[in-house]
Design a protein around this nucleic acid. Structure first.
Lengths: 329, 329
DNA sequence: CTTCATCATGGATACGTTTCCATAGCTCCG
DNA sequence: CGGAGCTATGGAAACGTATCCATGATGAAG
């Protein structure tokens, strides 16, 4: 900028004014400045700019899990879109369900003076946010799961309702022995399990705890193995509710391998679900909307919004495609 | 930092020294500073830090297309991983194949003084990089496609080789009338088409230009419609090479709808390809490796690497699963 | 005892902006 | 014709950090 000023024969202030289009500058002077700018190839330094008091960095931090998971990818897509429209850049950071990594990542982002944070929190305690967040607390929005030990806006999916819908759907098609696969470390699958229990109780069916299968890591392989075990057991279930798209994949692989005729409903839709030999029935919600809502919530906070913390719950809906509509046998 | 200094009763310099662990500071003094730091909740301001001369921002820009596309998602995942390990943060920006948006996005990133850029360029001219890039040219690495009008390192997939392999595979299984679906605006599909032509010529088969189908936008729907048209034509092909995973999906949908027995090989693998009624044969390459290589190339440049521009081509390989091995009929 | 090296600490400066305040010239009005 | 108000411009300060240089104290070596 100094070079530009020198070249145009004006003071720094004048260049600043021209660049920002603020204040009175004679047209001829402005032209000279513009000429100098394009000759030099000058571009305003946003970093120096954001250093000034009262000026935020126009950058937010987005902290989530493995982008290879379409759920996170849609989330990121939507958030980046909304933020870009609002003039914000997005610092992307991934913490694969590791509390320590997450903590450090938050520190890095705060250190870069992001104006806000969108976090998909893992199950660890998030009280650390208060300390690491420094004096002028940066606004935070949690997505997909609330965080323990920290108060903030949060955008969720109706996990319990979805779990109930999925289970009820199977009951409605005559199933009584319905297994559920859960990844215990996830908040979401816990709520889905609760919906499962409620649906069964509501239908007067006792929950057979042998059919509630906890998968420590929540991987496709675990789900596959668990399904195999369930279906080859003496008293197998006639239906399975898998609470994650990864788990659903495992269930499908195992049941195909066994040639079993088990009904399946999965939580979360996935690509090509309708193209499989038997199209897959799922309960789904609008992941991109999740990201958009979170982004807007964050923007409100950044703009000084002082309303009480919100808890937005997006609806989930069932898409019947085939695997969920087979009768027990 | 000033507050910390005041509270600890020392000068700014001393705090800086303690924070960075550089220079001689009496242990007792350092303890006092540390105490003040945690009392105040101080966190070093990376922005101010990067403002200093000679210090880069430890941030890079990643500019690519829709994250919902698994290809971009894996790329981003790998790049973020490598960069995080090297202590860099990643500014994520998406420009959906729109040259004007891309140009502005690059400007934004440069304005934020990224230390380097990883770009998946669209087909437009990239000479603008030179001007927008300012005086001290920020290093750039292109991924998946080279950019016209700009010299830089680039990491590619062996598109031509992959196209040739895919086509040859179909020829080897007895096919003579092989259609190809191409999105003309993409650099990649153009090279795959070239491989297709070479394979056919090599086998002494004349290319029937009616079987070379250009899809203006490259969407699944277009591919579906084109496949329908091909298969219901008087002289239909017995095999289809679809040059993109989106196109492959369209081909599969249309051929299933028609109940047609057409052989299919797709470029790029996709999830559940092995779970479809007839598992899908694809040519694939390691997308994450693409991102990793790009990241490392960029890090080398940021560290002042001055080697001539590299052009890395990753191999592609065929995975036979079923749709590519059916005989013509 | 003097000189010199070393240690611990501090002051000033620069990075690139923008905001606040100041100044000079001009116009308009009483 | 003098001052008020406006226009166009410029100077100085501040944001938070790290580096360069300086200073005083302490101890060691001669």
């Amino acid at each position: 900028m100094r070079d530009v000023a020198e070249r145009a024969g004006v003071a720094l202030v004048t260049v600043s004014r021209v660049v920002n289009g603020i204040g009175a500058v004679r047209e001829e002077t402005a032209d000279r400045v513009h000429a100098a700018i394009s000759e030099i190839g000058y571009q305003r330094n946003e970093i120096a700019r954001s250093l000034r008091p009262g000026q935020n960095s126009l950058t937010i931090g987005l902290l989530l899990g493995d982008l290879t998971n379409p759920f996170y990818a849609s989330l990121a897509k939507a958030a980046v879109e909304v933020m870009a429209d609002a003039g914000y850049a997005v610092l992307l950071s991934t913490a694969d369900e590791d509390p320590e990594v997450e903590r450090r990542a938050v520190g890095e982002l705060i250190g870069r003076r992001v104006a806000g944070l969108i976090i998909v929190p893992d199950q660890g305690d998030h009280a650390f946010l208060r300390e690491v967040n420094g004096h002028d607390q940066v606004p935070v929005v949690f997505v997909d799961r609330p965080a323990t030990g920290a108060e903030a806006d949060v955008v969720l999916v109706d996990n319990e309702g979805g779990g109930r819908t999925a289970t009820q759907h199977l009951v409605d098609h005559g199933h009584r022995r319905i297994a559920i696969l859960v990844a215990p470390s996830y908040y979401t699958t816990g709520r889905r399990l609760r919906g499962y229990r409620k649906a069964l109780r509501h239908s007067g069916i006792d929950v057979d705890e042998a059919l509630v299968v906890a998968l420590p890591r929540g991987t496709t392989e675990e789900a596959s193995a668990a399904t195999h075990a369930l279906l080859t057991s003496p008293n197998p279930p006639t239906a399975i509710f898998s609470t994650t798209s990864f788990l659903t994949e495992g269930v499908l692989r195992a049941s195909r391998q066994l040639g079993a005729q088990v009904a399946v409903v999965g939580f979360d839709d996935f690509k090509l679900a309708d193209m499989l030999p038997t199209p897959v029935t799922v309960v789904t919600s609008d992941t991109e909307e999740l990201g958009r809502r979170a982004a807007h919530l964050l923007l409100d906070r950044i703009d000084g919004g002082t309303a009480p913390f919100q808890r937005i719950v997006l609806p989930s809906q069932l898409i019947a495609r085939g695997t969920g509509e087979t009768a027990p046998r």
